[in-house]
């Protein structure tokens, strides 16, 4: 049963959606269209000349094994960031939901990291793990572990994942906590009376009822990991060591703004756009089926 609200006439609904349409057109359709157009050329940086190359930029990119490897890096990075930030957030939300005293304080403190910009978060984590003066590096050294993300690819990946996920945990935590508090107590109490333990209640009642929130966060976090983690990568590793942390969006930046290769950069944006659109379609088609609203 769906409720449909119908308007009489055309102008009122048009006027109501116009602001959204205009914003989308100016900030999305226009730049996206420009990117698609530019991806067909090799321009010089100053815009003095443009050479039409058709799909040449895409051929150049896809024949580059390092660009193809960047897809795998991005997949690993996005999966880790999403799983870590959502997993930790859910865990903390469940704990905070059970708190009776002081829950307000905990909630406020847990939300703080969201206010930290990704680039700043990157610098904070970089300081703690600095190979020379980092606090955590020093403790690891005491335990006999030689931390060196400057040369060790796995450590570098771990560090950028933690730094990217950290601020995101707050955001996810807020949504999970709101979701948990919206679950009627009576349902959980009824299950408890029937003898269901915490874990059983969580698995069979709480988690399914949270699924709309989880699904929403999944989509949003994947988009975050794909696009907004640029600042963290830029400050911590610049894509290194070797190419261990060069994710797709970082390569868009470095080819476009370090290399002034705007054709390749535009082509990469188009590929990235298509990839994220595809992922979102997949998420809605296959995962949303399992969501109970």
């Amino acid at each position: 049963m769906e409720k449909r609200i119908t308007f009489k006439g055309v102008w009122l609904p048009l006027a109501l959606i116009a602001p959204q349409i205009v914003i989308t057109a100016v900030f999305f359709f226009y730049p996206a269209g420009q990117a698609i157009w530019q991806s067909l050329f090799i321009p010089d940086p100053f815009g003095l000349s443009m050479t039409y190359v058709g799909l040449g930029n895409f051929e150049f990119l896809l024949s580059d094994p390092f660009y193809r490897a960047s897809f795998v890096t991005t997949a690993i990075f996005s999966t880790l960031v999403t799983v870590v930030s959502m997993g930790v957030a859910l865990f903390l939300a469940v704990l905070a939901d059970r708190l009776i005293k002081g829950s307000g304080t905990y909630r406020t403190l847990l939300i703080w990291p969201y206010a930290v910009a990704p680039a700043v978060a990157g610098v904070l984590w970089l300081f703690m793990f600095n190979t020379r003066v980092g606090v955590i590096t020093w403790y690891l050294g005491q335990l006999g572990y030689d931390w060196n993300h400057v040369l060790n690819e796995n450590e570098a990946m771990g560090l950028v994942v933690v730094a990217s996920a950290w601020g995101r945990i707050s955001y996810n935590f807020l949504f999970f906590l709101a979701g948990l508090q919206a679950i009627p107590r009576s349902v959980i109490e009824a299950a408890a009376i029937d003898g269901a333990r915490f874990w059983t209640r969580f698995r069979t009642i709480v988690f399914p009822l949270l699924s709309p929130i989880t699904f929403f966060l999944l989509v949003v976090n994947v988009v975050y990991a794909f696009f907004e983690t640029f600042g963290v990568i830029h400050t911590i590793t610049s894509g290194g060591p070797q190419q261990a942390t060069t994710i797709l969006v970082y390569k868009v930046y470095s080819d476009g703004f370090v290399g002034q290769d705007l054709g390749s950069s535009a082509a990469q944006s188009v590929i990235l756009l298509a990839l994220v659109a595809l992922l979102t379609v997949i998420q809605f088609k296959f995962i949303e089926r399992r969501v109970h609203y």
Partner: peptide, 14 residues
């Protein structure tokens, strides 16, 4: 594109 070539050299030297 020398800034980028330096980036490539950095990667390979690492």
């Amino acid at each position: 594109s020398f800034d980028q070539i330096r980036g490539i050299i950095d990667e390979e030297l690492e």
